[in-house]
Nucleic acid binder design. Sequence first.
DNA 1: CTGAAAGCGCTTACAG
DNA 2: CTGAAAGCGCTTACAG
Lengths: 337, 337
Amino acid sequence: MPATIYDIAKKAGVSIATVSRVFNNSANVSDKAKKKVLAVADEMGYHPQAFAQGLASRKNNTVMIVVPVISNYFFMEVLGGIQDKLSEENYELSIFNISPNKDIQEQVEHVLKRRWAEGYLFISIHLNDKDWSKLQKYNVPITLVDEHYEGFDSVSVDNAQGAYRAAKSLFKNGYQRVAMLSALETSKPIQDRILGYKKALSEFGIAFDKNLVITGDTMYRDGFTERAGYEAMIKILTMDPMPEACFCASDIQAVGALKAMQDTGKQIPIIGYDDIELAEYMGLSTIRQPMRDMGFFATQNLIERMNKPDKAISQTIYTPELITRTSTEVNGKKIDA
Amino acid sequence: MPATIYDIAKKAGVSIATVSRVFNNSANVSDKAKKKVLAVADEMGYHPQAFAQGLASRKNNTVMIVVPVISNYFFMEVLGGIQDKLSEENYELSIFNISPNKDIQEQVEHVLKRRWAEGYLFISIHLNDKDWSKLQKYNVPITLVDEHYEGFDSVSVDNAQGAYRAAKSLFKNGYQRVAMLSALETSKPIQDRILGYKKALSEFGIAFDKNLVITGDTMYRDGFTERAGYEAMIKILTMDPMPEACFCASDIQAVGALKAMQDTGKQIPIIGYDDIELAEYMGLSTIRQPMRDMGFFATQNLIERMNKPDKAISQTIYTPELITRTSTEVNGKKIDA
DNA sequence: CTGAAAGCGCTTACAG
DNA sequence: CTGAAAGCGCTTACAG
């Protein structure tokens, strides 16, 4: 049985209130009492229990991440940013993994009801407006990442704009038949990126051809995998006529696509999406999302709200930028942005 | 103010004990009472608070991961396995990130004292025997991943053996000057991998040359990055005489190394370590660590211990296997394992 | 600066 | 099957 506050109080010859004050750095404790308590606590290996503190104080110093897919590059980078910020603060980190097989809304409400944390970071959770508005009534600090809804603070990237920039640069450099290597169409980021692709098309007066929007067959992780990218690129390279260039919905798919081109010996310029660390080393042109910054900033925003619940709600939207590398070079000549 | 068990009890016309029983699926509740309670709870949006439950029952259904570097490929894969297992069970997941700047032992003890979780997964936490033995006195379920100490359950990979296999296959295929692309030497996995490399050397009667153990200059993430791999490979390729082949301490470094070879136009066979998903798409020969399995199995093991604290301690050690791909092919000929 | 006491929201023998 | 009551380990006005 580990020591409790009562054991320490008794042994130190003070009340439990004093012990509590010592551990909460409360001002009003004599140096003598403080020293004594600390000494006894150290000797008995005492440390306040998080639960009891949480119950008594009605706060628990915990930030919870709610996320659907945990082992994925985008999340990993965002998580890095969250950690960077959290390490400056005194908060514990908890992660709740939303299962794709059960009702999302229900799981999210469950999490909120359990009151596990003081604040929540919802990452890549996409709900409709009605469901989001229901969540507001819980009146708990939530910051959205990779999604936005006017009722909550959010940090996201303009997906349509990113896709638009990628496609536009390809059209601008003279390519006409530009394929889009896509993923699961019910995915919200995909929908937005298709929108951007279409916008670029119409700006250049090119008709939309749905046959040029290709996905792989593997739908694991919504199709955001090397394998799905490989499969899709094989389809693209065997089309007749073959597309002249390709915009990929994610870098990780682009990695598979690059491999497909290598295996078949056919090559067309491609642009990815995300700018994961690897992209630089693959020479992959891509649309950069500031993932780490997003995580950092979202966490900062959340902590501010936790401390000041009535501050104004803010929507932060990053505009992604095009990074050109060798995957869009032709005869050593870079592509124009 | 959210509803409490008292509110529900009053409104449902039962005692709080009955409400509690309903939410704990206790057998002894009449169907009628159960239905009534559930209806009222749903109406008032009630759900038991995790804290209060934890305090009263002295368990909290939480598994905590303790890990030094959170955004890294190895951890991401292991995490995937943990999630796979946890999603079958009814546990919450918490993550504690050990800061590299503070004393590790102290942080670990802090975590244990706070009693945040019922069971802990220590991932890539390396302590000396004395510190590990100190941790035993907390008498709490802990499973080690990527480390082993006889006092705890553990799931690890034989790093020396893996490195040995990689280096051996290179020597066996006729290469004499085989460089090792290394990382921070105080890292325990690195030490073990160097040991394996040396073992292969001596088996083939080749003298150890410390100038052939090369690291990059970037020591961010202990040197397990593309950049560090790139830097190190550049050094290797400019050595005179140039090494004939290279064993890399991780796939992620190997990715950088591949890029270095591409940029310089020089090429030697290389073998990585880990077999991250990407390796297949890069054609990278590598030593496969069953990362996902390790996470899955460690979690399973931990849960078993949580349910049965006195079960025998078990050490699981995987032997990594060599996967040969194009990065070790010469003129289309595969390397022998 | 300090202590007695109430209270946080649950669980769980115990008695019926 | 059900309820009254004690207890989990803390925090925090309140009074001194």
